[in-house]
């Protein structure tokens, strides 16, 4: 088990709260809720040790250089592939989209 945190620039706080995904091998659970203006915060608790660099790379590609709403994202990861992580985040943002 490993806990990782990440932070990116964001716009105004997002609205709504959602939980998507599944507590299951190869999957992850994603909780998204409104955050503090200007900041997108991510906390990852993962069953895979030593995966910090992979998460950092994935989030940089997703969240850097684009205007995201300020949200707090809590991730419980059970060994999901980067493709599955991207899908779950996409699903979560879809759920809170106005």
């Amino acid at each position: 088990m490993e806990t990782l945190t990440f932070q990116f620039a964001a716009a105004e706080p997002g609205r709504g709260r959602t939980v998507v995904g599944c507590v299951s091998s190869g999957d992850l659970e994603v909780l998204i809720e409104p955050g503090t203006a200007g900041s997108l915060q991510i906390q990852v608790v993962t069953s895979v040790n030593g995966s910090g660099a992979r998460w950092a790379q994935l989030f940089q590609r997703l969240f850097e250089g684009r205007q995201w709403p300020a949200v707090n994202i809590d991730i419980h990861d059970f060994g999901a592939t980067p493709g599955v992580v991207r899908l779950r985040l996409e699903q979560g943002f879809e759920e809170i989209a106005p």
């Binding site: 599944c22 999957d27 493709g83 599955v84």
Partner: peptide, 18 residues
């Protein structure tokens, strides 16, 4: 577990990816 829940869309793992 996911199919039993209420998510509108669920994650399907296929040979071509998720």
């Amino acid at each position: 577990r996911e199919w039993a829940g209420c998510a509108r869309r669920v994650l399907l793992k296929s040979p071509l990816g998720a």
